[in-house]
Computed example of a mutant assay.
Amino acid sequence: MKALIQRVKQASVEVDGQSVGAIEQGILTYIGLGPDDDLHTAKRMIDKILTYRIFENESDPAKAGKLDQNVQQVGGGLLLVSQFTLMAKTDKGRRPDFGGAMGPEAAKSLFTELVAYAKTQYPKVSTGEFGANMQVMSINDGPLNFNLKMS
């Protein structure tokens, strides 16, 4: 499982011109699922994202400028977007190989479980629409982007 997380001032997802998910300050997360991933791995990834310290501690002058708080501590949103292309093999040739991605039916089921778990852990969770052609808009903050991998 891979996740590309981006600290954002705001982010939203549209499908067919309709908003399906949006957050203000928080983390925009693209999730890639591999064939060996399961709910245990998904829960560990969500736990890591929710506790990953990528926000500055503005309340403590001694920690000014340090990435010391997580999304929960700053009351930010979490926008989860399924993104099978994160699992592409790109080391050979000029065309991505998506053989490293979980099949669509299994991925939809696991992504649904991942989102349900995230919502039990934190109330400010929003999502894109699995399998849809989505338009994702974001205002990156920093920009700060991190690739997380869980196996």
Rank of each mutant, 00 (worst) to 15 (best):
K2A: 07
K2N: 15
K2H: 13
L4I: 12
Q6T: 14
K9Q: 03
K9P: 00
Q10M: 01
A11H: 00
A11L: 00
E14D: 13
V15W: 00
D16R: 05
D16I: 03
D16E: 09
G17D: 07
S19M: 15
S19P: 07
G21R: 03
G21E: 03
E24L: 00
E24Y: 01
Q25L: 03
Q25G: 02
I27E: 00
L28E: 01
L28A: 13
L28Q: 08
T29V: 15
I31H: 10
I31D: 06
G32C: 05
L33R: 06
D37G: 09
H40N: 12
T41F: 10
T41E: 11
K43A: 04
K43T: 09
R44M: 11
D47V: 08
D47H: 12
K48D: 02
I49R: 01
I49G: 00
T51R: 14
E56L: 04
P61G: 08
P61R: 08
A64E: 15
G65F: 14
L67V: 06
N70D: 15
Q72I: 10
Q73S: 11
Q73W: 13
V74D: 01
G75L: 06
G75Y: 07
G76L: 09
G76I: 02
L78C: 06
L79H: 01
L80I: 12
L80A: 09
L80G: 09
S82A: 14
Q83A: 12
L86D: 13
L86E: 11
L86G: 14
L86A: 12
A88I: 09
A88L: 06
A88E: 11
A88Y: 07
K89C: 02
K89D: 11
T90F: 07
G93W: 06
G93M: 12
R94P: 02
A101V: 12
A101N: 09
G103Y: 07
K108Y: 02
L110H: 05
E113Q: 12
L114N: 03
A116W: 00
Y117S: 07
Y117G: 07
A118N: 11
K119E: 13
K119M: 10
T120D: 10
Y122D: 10
P123V: 03
K124M: 05
S126R: 01
Q135H: 14
V136P: 02
S138H: 04
I139Y: 00
D141S: 01
D141V: 04
P143R: 01
P143N: 01
N145C: 04
